[in-house]
Simulated assay, not measured.
Amino acid sequence: MARVQAIPADTDEGVWTVITQTSTYLLDFDAMTLLRAPGVGRSDDHRWEVSELRRDSQDIPLLGVKECRVGGPAQFWVHAADEPDVRTWRVTTPVVEIERIG
């Protein structure tokens, strides 16, 4: 649909893909979920390693976006794995591309 430079912190609708140096994220603000596909990024730079995170390739509850801009790391506010009352941050490698797909 439309590529953008950032997802505003107050975003509360739509479906977005965020491609980083090492992974692709799917943010669904209608369902309030975040999915990370590790190793599906856009980097020819071998200095970036793909980290394995708990609940990779699974929808996790998304609480919001603190920062998501092309050129810098994104910060997503999510519920922690296995502890629904605990909140934590997912911080990414630098963002390469953002697109609203729904």
Rank of each mutant, 00 (worst) to 15 (best):
A6P: 08
A9I: 09
D10L: 11
T11E: 08
E13C: 14
E13W: 14
E13N: 15
G14P: 10
G14N: 11
W16Y: 11
T24F: 00
T24K: 06
L26E: 08
L27V: 02
D28H: 05
F29M: 05
F29W: 06
D30L: 08
L34Q: 09
R36I: 04
R36P: 04
P38F: 02
P38N: 05
V40F: 00
V40H: 01
G41A: 04
R42T: 09
S43P: 01
D44T: 12
D44P: 07
D45T: 02
E49C: 00
V50R: 02
V50N: 07
S51W: 11
S51E: 14
E52D: 13
L53G: 10
L53C: 11
R55C: 03
R55V: 00
S57L: 06
S57Q: 08
I60V: 09
I60M: 04
P61T: 13
L63G: 01
K66W: 14
K66I: 15
R69A: 12
R69C: 12
G71L: 04
G72R: 15
P73D: 07
Q75R: 15
W77I: 09
A81G: 00
A81M: 00
E83G: 03
E83M: 12
P84R: 01
R87H: 13
R87W: 13
R87A: 10
T88H: 01
W89R: 14
R90P: 06
T92I: 01
V96E: 09
I98R: 01
E99W: 09
G102E: 10
